[in-house]
Design a protein around this nucleic acid. Structure first.
Lengths: 139, 139
DNA sequence: CTGTATCCTAGTAGATACTG
DNA sequence: CAGTATCTACTAGGATACAG
């Protein structure tokens, strides 16, 4: 190690030997998670569908700001990953319903926790940003 | 899944009037969440820093697959948002430590839940993808 | 050791128009 | 109603080289 001449004793550093509840072992898992969670609209759509089957136009209204294109794309992606089921009712006019699968429903609590966290801290995050930007300008 | 979408008139569908535990009220909150959670490396870095202050090179090793550039960029973003603190020790060679803030630590359980979910379902997600792709080809 | 700078690619996303 | 097509723009991300 190269810290012997820095004067910093490093016997107080916590061991990085993965305390079994901190790191998921496989990086693969993380990658899979990100694909569901990252993306601008995934969470919004899943949250909107939590209450039960929902139609295309309802989603378009509920997930405000989403474009028709992105709604379609995200829906297809979610369907492909088995997070929701697309049901076409052969009526006229056509009616399509999107229903979350069981595994998607399991994300409910996590997403609630996530949004709660954001709600608790959005003010301080905004403040931190302003502080950082102000300081960056000065520097 | 628990309820069918097979044409049974569903009088049990809950109203879409935001049951106060399902939708975060403001789309803004969601947007803020996504900025912390989306992005390929945010979760990995935060998880790696959960155990205590961690150095640049340690992160580079622990968050496997990340490039130096993305590590720097993500670190800066996280710092700007007040999720971690960057401490420079004016030694030679330089030593920089990244320490999570309290609000970042609060994400621990949520992220654990997320990775656990991914771990539980990654097999069925992969299967769903194969099925979807196979069917798309046929169609 | 801890970054920055540059170049380049692919994916994400918006706008708009068109269709079964 | 529920999409698709096309065109464009921005950003995320990787590779590589250089620097304090």
């Amino acid at each position: 190690m190269s810290q012997s001449h820095t004067g910093v004793p490093n016997d107080t550093v916590p061991d990085r030997t993965v305390p079994e509840d901190t790191v998921p072992g496989e990086t693969c898992s993380l990658g899979e998670v990100l694909e569901q969670v990252s993306g601008k609209w995934n969470i919004g759509i899943i949250m909107a569908a939590m209450a039960g089957p929902i139609r295309f136009t309802e989603l378009e209204r509920e997930v405000q700001g989403i474009s028709r294109r992105m709604l379609t794309l995200t829906l297809r992606k979610l369907e492909r990953d088995g997070l929701l089921i697309r049901t076409v009712h052969p009526t006229v006019p056509p009616k399509v319903e999107y229903t979350l699968t069981e595994i998607a429903h399991e994300l409910h609590d996590t997403f609630i926790g996530l949004t709660a966290w954001a709600d608790r801290h959005k003010a301080s995050i905004a403040a931190a940003r302003r502080a950082y930007d102000a300081q960056s300008q000065g520097a």
